[in-house]
Design a binder for these strands. Structure first.
Length: 119
DNA sequence: CGGCTGACGACCT
DNA sequence: GAGGTCGCCAGCC
C-alpha cells in the first residue's frame, strides 16, 4: 500500500535527527508517569513508526539524561524480557518512582499514570 | 543489492 | 484474553 496520510500521519519525518527528536519527547515525561512508543510516534506526527521509537531507545546510551524506562508498550507493559538486565532495571526504576509493576511486567493503573506527550 | 530483524501497534479470529 | 497478520523503516548482514 502506498503512503496514505489518513493511515500514516501528516508527513514523513523519519530521517537524520529522528533519534534526537524521540529523546526530546521522552524527556517531557514527568517522574511517576509513563508513556508509550505509539504516543511518542504520534507526538512526532507519525502514527505508524512506533517501532522506530523502540529502535531509537535501543540505541540510547545510558549516560544520557533520558528517562527511557518511562516508556512502555500500548498494553501498558514493559516491552523487554523481565529476566533480562534491562527489563529488571526498568521495573525497578519505575517502582522507585511510585509506579506499581506486577510480576508479569504490567503497569498497574496504567490509564491513570499514562502521560500523553503533546505535539 | 535483497532479505531479515526488531524496546510496536491496529485489527481480526 | 490469546494468537496471527500486516504495515513501518533504519540498520545489519
Amino acid at each position: 500500500m502506498p503512503y496514505d496520510p489518513e493511515r500514516h500521519g501528516p508527513e514523513r519525518i523519519v530521517g537524520p535527527g529522528f533519534f534526537e527528536k524521540v529523546y526530546a519527547v521522552v524527556q517531557e515525561v514527568p517522574a511517576g508517569r509513563v508513556t508509550t512508543y505509539g504516543d511518542i510516534a504520534e507526538a512526532l506526527g507519525m502514527r505508524s513508526i512506533a517501532r522506530k521509537v523502540g529502535h531509537a531507545l535501543a540505541g540510547l546510551s545510558h549516560d544520557r539524561d533520558v528517562p527511557w524506562f518511562r516508556v512502555v508498550n500500548a498494553q501498558g507493559a514493559i516491552s523487554r524480557p523481565l529476566d533480562s538486565g534491562h527489563g529488571r532495571e526498568q521495573a525497578e526504576r519505575l517502582r522507585a518512582e511510585g509506579i506499581e509493576v506486577s510480576s508479569n511486567g504490567k503497569i498497574q493503573d496504567f490509564t491513570r499514570v499514562r502521560f500523553v506527550p503533546q505535539h
